[in-house]
Design a protein around this nucleic acid. Structure first.
Lengths: 213, 213
DNA sequence: CTATGTGAACAGCTTCACAGCG
DNA sequence: CGCTGTGAAGCTGTTCACATAG
């Protein structure tokens, strides 16, 4: 396989979608699927599916397609989610609360290992959805990250606090940040950042439907 | 100006970022900014900024740059967020509750006008964060959409209920859906869909940091 | 005969570089 | 001179089409 540098980010994004679709097929006891059958429900062409997978090796069988029970685990391995990864959640406001209780992460190989907040009034409170967990102070971050070898963090603090919180996370050893604050984070190039700005998403929709009746 | 078809989706996405940055500069009483000053904090090249804006007209002044107080409103107009737009929220689970109480939409020209849920036990409950609002049954959707001329909807229901809920929304008149369920929605081509799959985002980060120490 | 893997053609986006304006 | 606006060049990603394998 190739843990290549030349893989388009868009291709990796699609890998996640293939995995999602694959889980669906597996749940329906499907043994094999063709690139077309895999891509169609996702709105992705068969050629695109094959090219994307080809970046990482040859998983298919000519004339047959891909074995569902093989490709799924293979994709998880490529994405690095074949083993459950602990994730820290920083910020327990509205959004943080929802993310802590969200049960979509677990199924995909992520586990919220601990929750942090800078507000002393929140520290010590229990965390709905994560049994026996309590909100911890930011100062506990380095210890938890080191002890549990945490690589990923979810950042759900207000915009004004985001950059400082991100720096604290990086200093604690976090290597990838999923950022929900509407700001661009500036961190070392070797730290991965993915940002989700909900208002930006709505603006994209607003633009797309503008000019219609 | 050109409400052109040839505008790359990526360019529109960046428009949102420019607007965000512009708001920041305005808050700091900046009068004019160059394409470089606008792009740098976002990690976007000056040429890219100019090209993106050029899709919609000529807003700059050679030798000076862009007038902050002009460009902001102009971008809002292009994105269709110059007037506050009502948005319906469908699904009041963990995520829906957070989104309803999220105060990041308001500042960007969106207002959660009403909240819906299919669960009869939830219908009638009050909505924290939106005063005097109560959760409504899905059957109220068409009426509310028509009365308030709602175009956009946020979909925050479980994966298994998402497609059906989306269809209900489209039938009620919704033209754009911000989808948080981890499934690909199949709707008419003239309905815009933006999807945010939180697990997918974490997988992207996981991939990026894989292979590091 | 079906479906993969892939080089080659194509398309689209981004960067470059510069003419021209204030 | 600084900075925009923009053709032209360069590059990256997607689609096409086919040789090949089962």
């Amino acid at each position: 396989m190739a843990r290549a540098e030349n893989v388009p980010a868009a291709a990796v994004q699609r890998l996640s979608l293939y995995l999602r679709q694959l889980d669906f097929f597996q749940a329906h006891n499907r043994r094999t699927i063709s690139s077309r059958q895999l891509g169609d429900p996702l709105g992705i062409s068969d050629a695109q599916v094959r090219k994307d997978l080809a970046h990482f090796g040859q998983f298919g069988q000519a004339g047959v397609g891909y074995r569902v029970s093989e490709l799924g685990p293979r994709l998880r391995q490529i994405l690095g989610t074949d083993k459950t990864a602990p994730v820290v959640l920083v910020g327990f406001g509205n959004l943080g609360r929802a993310l802590g209780a969200y049960h979509g992460f677990d199924k995909r190989g992520f586990e919220v290992a601990a929750v942090f907040d800078a507000d002393p009034k929140k520290v010590g409170q229990s965390v709905p959805g994560i049994e026996s967990a309590r909100i911890r102070p930011m100062s506990d971050l380095p210890k938890v990250v080191a002890e549990r070898d945490v690589r990923l963090g979810i950042l759900a603090v207000p915009a004004t606090a985001a950059q400082a919180a991100a720096e604290t996370m990086v200093a604690a050893g976090i290597r990838g940040i999923l950022n929900f604050a509407p700001v661009t984070l500036h961190v070392d190039a070797d730290v991965a950042v993915a940002s989700v700005d909900l208002a930006v998403q709505l603006e994209q929709l607003s633009f797309q439907i503008a000019g219609q009746a």
